[in-house]
């Protein structure tokens, strides 16, 4: 039986293993995480739920000090963190906002998250202001060059890989000439960035634009997929909206199961729930449901 110090050492080793995302034999661990939102902050600190990692929206922690950073530091002591940005605006023709980049870098240097991501989208214009939202890009050669230049600059500045997430989209531009997944694959080839595959977003866009989500998933550069997102969405007047406000739907669970089974790759998987946020226990159960589904098909 281990004494206290032995137990503590064992826990530390386990923690280090978890941070690396592999077991003692170097086999990849299947990590399941949750998006950490404000209503659950105190619960997580008090109960230390068994979650492999937590993901935070990096922009929620751009403070110079105070309670939010204090909270993040406490979480980082116990859990591996993933930083998910919503404001780098990598698709902006206006380029990157240097002040925002410095703010994000400060957090990256401080917390050293094991994953770091933003979206295939833009939010800042050159002169009209910003939307603070994930806006769609026309997929063509001009935007591809701009996106790749911005990703390369950002990766050089941060000194690390960025994962790019496919967004949910509600409109398409006439100037789009490339299928989204091919556009995303091309970015990874040109910049060596990774992919954050949001299977709910693939499904939402596929329903809004009438394409086959399976074809999208078959075409994605699997070797570059370093994280998967799952969430629930809503339907308003026939349009699917990525609300993150409900359970993951059956079709998305099926797509996820098939993807994991087909590729047999243990990719860290995260469950997001950002609106109408339920009790932590419900979110935790949603994660366990996903975990069971993944384990069934990867046995």
């Amino acid at each position: 039986m281990l004494n206290y110090q032995g137990r503590k050492d064992e826990l530390l080793v386990k923690e280090k293993i978890r941070r690396l995302g592999s077991d003692r034999r170097g086999q990849a661990l299947f990590m399941f995480g949750l998006g950490l939102r404000h209503p659950h902050h105190q619960y997580v600190l008090q109960h230390h739920p068994q979650v492999d990692f937590f993901e935070v929206h990096t922009e929620n922690f751009i403070a110079e000090g105070g309670a939010s950073l204090n909270f993040l530091s406490q979480v980082a002591e116990r859990y591996p963190l993933s930083f998910h940005c919503v404001g780098l605006s990598l698709g902006s023709a206006a380029g990157l906002n240097q002040q925002h980049m410095r703010n994000i870098k400060k957090l990256l240097d401080l917390y050293q998250p094991f994953l770091f991501s933003d979206h295939l989208s833009w939010s800042n214009s050159s002169s009209a202001g910003t939307s603070n939202d994930l806006l769609p890009i026309p997929y063509n050669q001009e935007s591809l060059k701009i996106f790749c230049d911005n990703v390369s600059r950002a990766q050089d500045f941060f000194g690390r890989e960025i994962l790019i997430e496919n967004p949910s989209a509600y409109l398409q531009f006439k100037g789009s000439q490339i299928f989204e997944v091919d556009f995303l694959n091309e970015i990874t080839r040109k910049t060596d960035c990774g992919i954050l595959l949001d299977i709910n977003n693939v499904f939402v866009s596929s329903q809004n634009f009438s394409f086959d989500p399976k074809e999208y998933l078959n075409r994605i550069e699997v070797a570059k997929v370093k994280e998967i997102h799952l969430a629930g969405h809503s339907i308003y007047n026939g349009l699917r909206i990525d609300t993150h406000s409900t359970h993951i739907c059956k079709e998305v669970m099926e797509l996820y199961g098939n993807f994991v089974q087909q590729h047999g790759k243990k990719i860290p998987t995260l469950i997001e729930w950002d609106e109408d946020i339920p009790e932590f226990s419900m979110l935790f159960n949603e994660m366990k449901k996903v975990q069971r589904a993944a384990q069934r098909v990867t046995k």
Binding site: S125, S131, I146, L171, K174
Partner: peptide, 26 residues
């Protein structure tokens, strides 16, 4: 051009949809 499209897109979000932006949308 993308720069112009993005400026018009933001204008359309804060104010109202602009006819020449709507022409760019499917």
């Amino acid at each position: 051009q993308l720069k112009e499209l993005q400026n018009k897109f933001i204008d359309a979000l804060y104010d109202k949809a602009l006819p020449n932006l709507l022409a760019e949308v499917v």
